[in-house]
Simulated assay, not measured.
Amino acid sequence: MSAHLFCFSAKGRALCDKIEKFLQEKGYEVTRQPSTDLAARTRECFQKGNLLIFVCACGIAVRAIAPLVRDKTEDPAVLVCDDCGNFVISLLSGHIGGANRAAVAVAEFLGATPVVTTATDRNGKFAVDEFAAMRGYLISDMKLARAVSSAILERDIPFFSDLPYRDALPQGLKASQGGEPLGIALSYREKAPFLKTLFLRPRVLTLGIGCRRGTSAEKIGRCVEEVFCAEGLNLSCIAKVASVDLKADERGLLEFCERQGLPTSFYTAAELSALHGNFTHSERVLRVTGTDNVCERAAVCGGEKLLVAKKIVDGVTVAVGLREEYVAF
């Protein structure tokens, strides 16, 4: 994570010294920006940074970032502090960018007052975009997310989850199995439980794959899509791809993973064979790889449970494992 500090006075520089040390302790790479050529410096930092902090009048920061603001899903967090250290204002990207959380943390460190103006926070309601950003869930529809954030100020919104949760639901949500006009679904499945469903997509699926030598990335992609379509699963919920280590140099498989931006895990035949469970046995696979089943065993070798057993599509074997985790609010 990177943070960029801007200041324009001696008092501002002294305050930046404190903030810089605090952010470094939190794991940020911090740069101090010169006070000259503010527009160019802001543009550069806005494009590459996670957090921008201006120690100055709010108007200076607003004018500096105004031409650069694009979308709440892309903009970095921007804070403004007065040079006396009395207030820390969350100016931009409060939820997804984390400016609200950063403002509270910096203010607590300085003994200042955090200024957070987002409606859900001021009313003590659940903020769906912040929740998703903090946990790495994908939001299916930002327009619908805005509608949910508006509606939650007036009434509790139905919430459905494929994943278990121990905690009580936060203010603004009520548990539901579906059927209402509008609701939130934390789900790795395609089926929409509500008439208008805002999906939050958790990356909890492991794709176990076996294939013949020389299988193309295109064929693997088509086979995976066919299986996910048949099983009603969402492709964006794949966390990683797993296979036997004999496939660690399989060009088509590696190309498929690279195109999809998916990490890989390769296991030895001994590691796969050591797993206990009911797996589809194949003598041919055993002779070739040293283990009786590649896709199912690979799909659960990281501790997952088997969600979809072995499917064979055009010579490619596919299985899906589910990483069971509790939702934390």
Rank of each mutant, 00 (worst) to 15 (best):
residue 279 F to D: 00
residue 210 G to C: 06
residue 251 R to F: 12
residue 269 A to Q: 07
residue 268 T to I: 02
residue 240 K to M: 12
residue 203 R to T: 10
residue 250 E to Y: 13
residue 278 N to V: 04
residue 274 A to I: 00
residue 247 K to P: 04
residue 260 Q to I: 02
residue 226 E to W: 03
residue 272 L to T: 02
residue 199 F to A: 12
residue 223 C to L: 12
residue 206 T to S: 14
residue 224 V to T: 09
residue 231 E to C: 12
residue 212 R to I: 08
residue 247 K to E: 11
residue 237 C to K: 02
residue 275 L to P: 03
residue 269 A to T: 00
residue 199 F to D: 11
residue 258 E to S: 13
residue 208 G to T: 02
residue 266 F to H: 08
residue 217 A to G: 08
residue 280 T to Q: 07
residue 241 V to Q: 04
residue 281 H to N: 04
residue 204 V to R: 11
residue 266 F to D: 14
residue 275 L to V: 00
residue 259 R to G: 15
residue 255 E to V: 15
residue 246 L to D: 11
residue 276 H to L: 05
residue 250 E to F: 14
residue 214 G to W: 10
residue 221 G to D: 13
residue 238 I to T: 07
residue 204 V to T: 10
residue 228 F to L: 13
residue 225 E to H: 15
residue 258 E to D: 10
residue 273 S to I: 02
residue 209 I to R: 02
residue 222 R to H: 12
residue 233 L to P: 11
residue 226 E to T: 10
residue 232 G to I: 08
residue 204 V to H: 08
residue 212 R to S: 10
residue 220 I to P: 00
residue 231 E to S: 15
residue 208 G to Q: 07
residue 201 R to P: 01
residue 277 G to V: 03
residue 211 C to Q: 14
residue 206 T to K: 08
residue 276 H to Q: 13
residue 229 C to A: 07
residue 222 R to V: 09
residue 258 E to K: 11
residue 246 L to H: 08
residue 230 A to H: 15
residue 225 E to T: 15
residue 236 S to V: 08
residue 225 E to N: 09
residue 279 F to N: 00
residue 277 G to Q: 03
residue 245 D to F: 04
residue 231 E to K: 13
residue 231 E to G: 10
residue 225 E to P: 03
residue 238 I to K: 01
